[in-house]
Amino acid sequence: MDYLTIIQILDSTVRLATPLLLTCLAGLFSERAGVVDIGLEGKLLAAAFLAGAAASVTGSIWIGLLAGVAGSLAFSMIHGLASITFKGDQLISGVALNFLAAGLTVVVGQSWFKLGGRTPSLPTDARFGEWNLPFSDALANVPFIGPLYHELISGHTALTYMALLAVPLSWWVLYRTRFGLRLRAVGENPSAVDTAGVSVVRLRFAALVIAGVLCGMAGTYLASLAAGFVKDMSAGRGYIALAALIFAKWRPWYALSATMLFGLLEAIGNRYQSITMGDFTIPVQFMQALPYILTVIILAGFVGKAIPPRAGGTPYVKER
């Protein structure tokens, strides 16, 4: 394996990890506030569909982004209404949203575009363009640094850079601001926040708004990458992001490394369709299943004890 191959795999890793990272951060905000968000998958799908639809109609991926974020936000607010306002079960509400998204995107897609649930394929100028950072072409032929800069660091879409920036920003918000302190507190012990005279409901909704926006970005990224919406295109990325969140122990920087690991596995699976070891050939299906296998391993608790926010999953009811 030569240097360029490694760079190319890493480049592909970043590309594939971007939607996971955004989704993982979305889950991080939501769960840190004590709202378990199994509906990430549904939000991704809804956002991808609306982004694909809007971009194909208007020809602008930025309008697609607006539509995707709006769709994801709407789903987030339904989740909030059910599980915060009406104190329903967060898991059930999330699962319901996933089903709703899976069905609705296809039905509405068929009704709008008559393409069997797909949206029309997006032309290049209706997708996110690659951002070439300064001197990218000039440096391309410099040994070692050239490929690194040209291939890996430069040449991603705006959303990728935004996702990477969202990591330190999330950390700063969570650990350095009043809002972050209250958000973390409400996920640990909402009654402490309530008795301190701060609204639990408002904080949790704020967290869901952030989660909705981040998920909307992730969904739009998927639609742009695949040049349009296809049925079930999120392919379990919402659940993988949740697994990464557990792996990351609900921390932003760990979330970055966790999602990069998943991205790397997916990149390897895509590049090496089959590996031959002596007489034995590892089948392509196994390589492509790698991220999902890791998900199972993480969820089975093989990676050490992860302590979730203590009030996660329980609606806040004032005690007498």
Partner: peptide
């Protein structure tokens, strides 16, 4: 009504912070 994995200081200021 304390947040168990916060420090004493963080618990004291929670809800009574002076600014953002």
């Amino acid at each position: 009504k304390l947040v168990e994995n916060f420090t004493v200081l963080e618990n004291v200021i929670l809800g009574a912070e002076d600014g953002g």
